[in-house]
Write a protein that binds this DNA or RNA. Sequence first.
DNA 1: CGCGACGTTGACCTACCTCAATTGGCGTGG
DNA 2: CCACGCCAATTGAGGTAGGTCAACGTCGCG
Lengths: 266, 266
Amino acid sequence: MNFSALIEETMPLPQRVVWNGAVERFHRTFPKGSEIVHQGEHPRAVRVVRSGWLARYRQLEDGRRQIVALHLPGDLCDLDAFSRMRAEHSLVALRTSVVAELPRHALGHLIASCPALGPVMAFSEIDGMATQREWLTSLGQRNAAERVAHLFCELLVRQSGEVRPGAGECEFFLTQSQLAEACGLTQVHINRTIQLLRRSYGVDLGKSRLHIADFARLAELAMFNPAYLNIDGSEGRHDFALFAHAAMSAGESAWPLSPARLGAAS
Amino acid sequence: MNFSALIEETMPLPQRVVWNGAVERFHRTFPKGSEIVHQGEHPRAVRVVRSGWLARYRQLEDGRRQIVALHLPGDLCDLDAFSRMRAEHSLVALRTSVVAELPRHALGHLIASCPALGPVMAFSEIDGMATQREWLTSLGQRNAAERVAHLFCELLVRQSGEVRPGAGECEFFLTQSQLAEACGLTQVHINRTIQLLRRSYGVDLGKSRLHIADFARLAELAMFNPAYLNIDGSEGRHDFALFAHAAMSAGESAWPLSPARLGAAS
DNA sequence: CGCGACGTTGACCTACCTCAATTGGCGTGG
DNA sequence: CCACGCCAATTGAGGTAGGTCAACGTCGCG
């Protein structure tokens, strides 16, 4: 369950109206290949992907690149804009994309007028962390075929919103080089790995489309367990609700820190 | 700047008293090697490391393990306890450790009575994310020596609290096997890599101690840039304050979601 | 038609893995 | 105090997954 879906499901209607209005006011379109954020620049905004695909990557001084995240429609990103002075990653559009760029001040107002916003953003960040950790185990423990298979499974599930898609097809906008940068492999080796998956696992990677004949089998190869994606929020959100309720019952204004203290600290 | 330090620096005194009192009430001691959380179990609490070292790892079905995070004193962890039904990672004590385990209900109350708590936890999660991404680039792009060197640099900086420690020495509680699980390498190869770092980079890894003769040189090898650790909060927190202030100026109760909506959603 | 981006293939290389044995430190029990 | 056992570190020999380099194919587009 991505950020936008969570907003729709849990945020009270009046807030949702405010939120969606704001988001649309800050829409911006980026052509395929354009850099939305450049590593090192001063972060200006928090972003919501409205359509398209984005890749976030970190570049080392000697040029090596690692794609550290893929952002699909509905995802929230760049939340760290508020605790950091420079972006540590670049953000690039993998295809023509529409992105809502919420500048600092606007987001400040929004958080104030939509009390549910802060928590939902926080929870969305927690979900993002889970994906990061799964990628980390991929790079650390899985071999080439498993890594690619795992990524394919993840992207199919994230797009379909179903935990077990059976057979499935979905859009796919990564070149083999980009796939390589995401998996920590060479473009050449990615190519050979894909051929293997094609031959022996019924995976078909065509023009902007990924087709998986037997999802269960691919998932088994990849040791893919969709739990980390927190897709069927129903289970998880049960406790989320408990938590929020407990907080609410006693609670007062919560999200912002005391400006006085902050002034003193800085 | 870790979670506990952030609490001390930014939270108003009355809240801090409440918070610290609660934390101490839930102290629990774990001997070295004990499992604090077992992958798959129902998460019971959010944790703050008071002393000791913890490792979080994910285990694949076939037994392969990846250490996905190291938690040092002052760190907050297991924040996902509230959005997930089962822990996706195990948590183990690398040495005798004291951990505050805040159960759900207690944390609910705390968040309600300490308005600054939610935001600080969220920011701490964002910082954690940055570290995850750096680990990800390590596994994806750095070779064995660079990975180990990078981890050494990170751990020295995190413990010293200084961005450029010059030469430095610090505690170190990972065995070579654990180092291997963190770096996605073999124990044997870790051993050889450490020998290389010893010989050619003045790194000395002794009984529970890590000594780095020339930090700058090691950092250069590792392409280590401490920015991601957000150590000198002063820079970053400037905007943090701006943000919180904007939110506060308009704000009302923010952290908890509306229980009504949540009930409807579940 | 020609150019540029992406995919494919082959030959060779090496960083890291695997397996297996050995060493050394340290705590425990006799 | 020594003997034993355990665990972590070390060493060696040989294997392989994946990298490197370089060429070629193919498709879409101006």
